[in-house]
Simulated scan of single mutants.
Amino acid sequence: MYYVAHRLFAAHDRLLAARLARLLAAKTGPEQVFLPFCDTDEEDLVAEVKGQRLFELDRERLGRLTAMIAVLHGPSLDDGVCMEMGYAHALGVPIVAVTTDFQTYSFDEDGPRFEFPDLLVQTVITDLVRVPRLGTDPGSGDMADSRYAVFADRNDRQLGQALETAVDRMLAHCLPRPTAPALPVGGASLAFVEQSPYTPIVGALTALVQKAGWATEESSRFTAHNSLEAARTDLVRSQAAGLLVTDVSGPETPPGAALLIGAAAARGARVIAYYPRTVLTHASGREPNWRNLMIQYAAEARFANPECLVDWLRR
């Protein structure tokens, strides 16, 4: 099963993903491709708890992965896509990321440049297809009277190059998948605490978890001198824990937190979310969601205040 992970809340994002899925299906057969929203019939699906049902359908496909193509663009990476990437990484399948973003990121003016603002994302990717520049000028006389038509065509060429390259790269990485060994759930008394990149008080969430009597490891990449090496360490340490405690605050769940939630869900580790300020999202036929449904239903519990978090952990 080839899984196309993409942001799906706007028509232009779904259109881009559909274009990618068509290219992939032409080389593998449509029955081998899973395109969320399209293949779960999301707009017309009727279910008693629709968001939860969509989560179940997506997770069932994630469990049969051969490879994943993840569409990533902009500094705010989609939290559902990041969760799916974490799930795929935990299963050991290749992940090809494709982006046409022309920006790169660094943590100081003279530091190394990275393709994504959270290096945990960079750490789990098998291959990256980055096409940051517009396609060549078509030079068509039919378009000479409209600079907007030329601009649209150059963007279209850029997208076409990126998607075709991503499909070819993903197929090159796909080898017969051996039977996957049982994934380690992690230590039952050890919690990995994923701090928020938006919260300046380092260690506050960890202190709450320790107050409840848990041994802890915590993320370090947001304050480390070598952020890339720290991201690799965070990933390894998180896999040793039986419980993930993560701050999911922000406009969306932070990319690294979403990724770790996906990896924990694939391993069967427990996930709890700390979310002090809840903003609900609403969609036709769905129950209100307090985060992306891939985050909401992977988490066992959510807490908005420290006291409830500590009480729950002490149970």
Rank of each mutant, 00 (worst) to 15 (best):
Y2F: 05
Y3F: 14
H6L: 01
F9T: 09
F9K: 07
H12W: 15
R14G: 02
L15S: 06
Q32W: 04
C38Y: 10
G51Y: 07
Q52T: 04
L57Y: 13
L62M: 05
T66W: 13
T66E: 15
A70V: 06
H73P: 00
D78N: 10
M83F: 13
E84L: 01
E84M: 00
M85N: 09
A88M: 04
A88L: 07
V96H: 12
A97N: 08
D101K: 01
T104W: 09
T104A: 08
D108E: 07
D110R: 10
D110Y: 13
L119N: 01
L120H: 08
Q122E: 08
Q122R: 10
T123R: 06
D127I: 03
L128N: 09
V129K: 13
R130W: 15
R130K: 15
V131D: 09
T136R: 08
P138T: 03
S140A: 13
D142H: 15
A144E: 14
A144K: 12
S146R: 14
R147H: 15
R147M: 15
D156F: 09
R157K: 15
Q158H: 12
L159K: 09
G160R: 05
A162D: 10
R169H: 10
L171C: 01
C174M: 12
C174W: 14
A180N: 10
A182G: 12
V185C: 14
V185A: 14
G186R: 06
S196H: 06
S196L: 01
P197D: 06
I201F: 11
A204C: 01
L205W: 03
T206L: 07
V209L: 04
A212G: 00
A215G: 05
E217Q: 09
S220K: 02
T223Q: 07
A224G: 05
L228T: 00
E229C: 01
L243G: 03
V245E: 00
G250E: 02
P251V: 05
P251F: 05
P255A: 10
A257R: 05
A257C: 08
L259C: 05
L259V: 06
L259H: 12
I261W: 01
G262C: 06
A263M: 00
A265V: 02
R267E: 01
R267T: 00
G268R: 08
A269T: 10
V271S: 04
Y274F: 12
Y275V: 00
Y275W: 00
P276G: 02
R277D: 14
T278C: 14
A283V: 15
A283D: 15
N292D: 13
L293S: 01
L293G: 03
Q296T: 09
Y297M: 04
A301M: 00
N305H: 07
